[in-house]
């Protein structure tokens, strides 16, 4: 099942403004590995990961219906 990935802020300079689909990612670590191959500029960029709007850490399992968001440092206000 493909997972939808959305990005914001400075990461849109690398991945654009449209959702990116990633196939066969069992967890967030596999997902990031695949994204790093497709978008080498993503490697070492600072961001946190949200799965369905909840911030996650470590290897978080993905079901295929999830939306994964990569969130660079916040700059509101």
């Amino acid at each position: 099942m493909p997972v939808q990935v959305i990005v914001f802020g400075q990461l849109t300079d690398i991945m654009g403004n449209n959702p990116v689909m990633v196939d066969n990612a069992a967890d967030t670590s596999e997902l990031i590995e695949q994204l790093n191959i497709r978008f080498p500029a993503l490697v070492n960029k600072p961001y946190i990961i949200a799965v369905d709007r909840q911030i996650v850490t470590g290897h978080t399992a993905l079901s295929g219906n999830n939306t994964v968001a990569l969130l660079p440092p916040f700059a509101g206000g």
């Binding site: 914001f8 802020g9 400075q10 949200a50 968001a69 969130l71 660079p72 916040f74 700059a75 509101g76 206000g77």
Partner: peptide
């Protein structure tokens, strides 16, 4: 103000 700057996913 402090929390929204630190916690809300907003970019400029």
């Amino acid at each position: 103000v402090e929390r929204l700057k630190a916690e809300l996913p907003i970019w400029g």
